[in-house]
Each structure stands twice: as structure tokens, then as C-alpha cells.
Simulated scan of single mutants.
Amino acid sequence: MKGCLCIHGFTGDPWEVEPIAESLRQQKDWLVYAPTLPGHGPDEDLREVTYQHWVYMVEVAVEELIKRCEEVYVIGFSMGGLLACYIAAKYEIKKLVLLSAAAYYLNPPMLFESVKAAWHTQLTGESEPDQLVDLYRHKMTHTPMSAVLQFMTAVKKIRPYIRHVHTPTLIIQGERDALVPRKSSEYLFRTIGAEEKFIHYLKDGRHMICHGFEQDQLTQLIQDFLLGQINRKDEQDEVSCT
């Protein structure tokens, strides 16, 4: 049996990675975990949790998968990508997938563009719904500063583990991500110690990459990578990282 741990992001919940988790559950003999990190979810209360609680939960989850499965994969979104790196550095993981992983965070140019679009919508009523606008509004008004500090601490504490990741890794990021800048994926690609590592940018992808217009392409990329169907030469031709 193959096992996969899917880790959502800061202030989020398993919905963020649900399309990927569900696609893998359709595979024969796959066990997929997508837990809710402490303090997150519909009844979230981030005031009393620390980054250690998040680390502990993903460690418990991956240890359970290792006990039950012959091979274990880890997929991490946003802050979950950093937690996934920590797991891959510490445990024997078959493959690692990082989605909009927050080794760095906040992309001011794209954030400005999204805010400008929101003002245009309010003034003219002419715009497609932008899930980022609601996301930013919620984060700015509902996230306690203590939790933000825990998130920043998690990034700082986990970064040193990245160079110890030798697991084959696929990094995917949207070029229109307004929360995580491109330098985050570039840093991860340079720093991860794995010989087999790929990076792919989705042209129209935003931060909520699993729910964007390119969801089908994203799902296919991940399945091809996990099932060993990515041709290394073809994929490396798509790398645009300095």
C-alpha cells in the first residue's frame, strides 16, 4: 500500500489540498491523510497553539503512515510545504511535493494587483470573483498576531532542514501567487539536497493553486511525478530557475 500525507497551509484547512487528496484516493491501494492542523479549521482558535503543535501533528501522521504503508509520499501547501520539508529531512519519505511552499512569504506586486482589482470591482461591479480578495480580508481581520509570529517562527526554524532533504522533489508554484514570491520556489530548488528535483510554474496559478483554473494540469503533474511517469529530460526543459 502507498501512503500520502497532504498538509494544508497557515490559517487554512484540508479543503486547500482536497482536490489532490481526492485524486490520489481514487488510485488503487492508496491511503491518504489530510489532517487539520491544531488551531485550524471551521472552529479555529490559533491563539493557544504554537508551531510545535503543527510539527507534532504531522510527525504523528507520517509515523502512522510509515507503519501501515510500504511507501510514503508527502505533499505540502504553503506553510504545509515547510512542514513537509521538515518531515522529508527527518523521515524516510519516497517523494515530496511542494505547492506554493512558503520558504518566503508575501509577494507585494501581486498583492497590489489583487487589491487594485478589488477596488475596481467595488467601483464598477465588473470583475470576476477573486478568492484572494476574501482570503486577504479574512487573514487581516481574523488572524491573531501571536499566530502570525508562530508562523514566522516555523519558517525560521524549519529553513535549516531544507538542505537535508534528499527525497526526490517536485516544486510547483503559480506565477500569479500574491502571498508567496517566486524567490521562495527558487530558494527551495537551489537548497534542497536531492539529486532528483523538478520545478514547474503554472502561468495563471495563484496562491490557492489546488483550486485554480489549472487544477487539472496540477493534478496530472503530481500524479505523473508520484507514479514515476515524469521524464526527467522533458521536465528539466521546463525549469526556469536561477
Rank of each mutant, 00 (worst) to 15 (best):
D45P: 00
Y73M: 14
C85G: 14
A101H: 10
A117E: 10
L106C: 04
A89H: 02
Y104V: 01
C69M: 11
E48P: 00
V55Q: 11
H40C: 06
Y56G: 11
K116V: 02
A103F: 02
A21M: 03
I93K: 07
Y86G: 02
A102Y: 09
V32M: 09
E92L: 00
L111H: 06
G39H: 11
A118M: 05
Y104K: 14
W119C: 02
A118W: 06
A103G: 06
W54R: 03
C69S: 13
M110E: 15
A89Y: 01
D43Q: 11
E22L: 12
Y51H: 09
G39C: 04
W119P: 00
G81D: 12
V49P: 11
I93G: 04
C69T: 12
V58K: 14
E71Y: 09
E64Q: 15
Q52I: 04
E59I: 11
R68A: 02
P35N: 01
R25H: 08
W54V: 07
V55N: 01
I93M: 05
G76N: 11
Q26N: 15
W54E: 07
E92W: 00
T124R: 02
E92H: 09
A102W: 12
P38S: 08
Y33T: 03
T121C: 00
E113W: 07
G80L: 11
W30E: 04
L98Q: 03
L31H: 13
E92K: 10
A61F: 07
E59T: 12
L96Q: 07
Y33N: 09
E126Y: 03
R47P: 00
T36N: 02
E59N: 14
A102R: 06
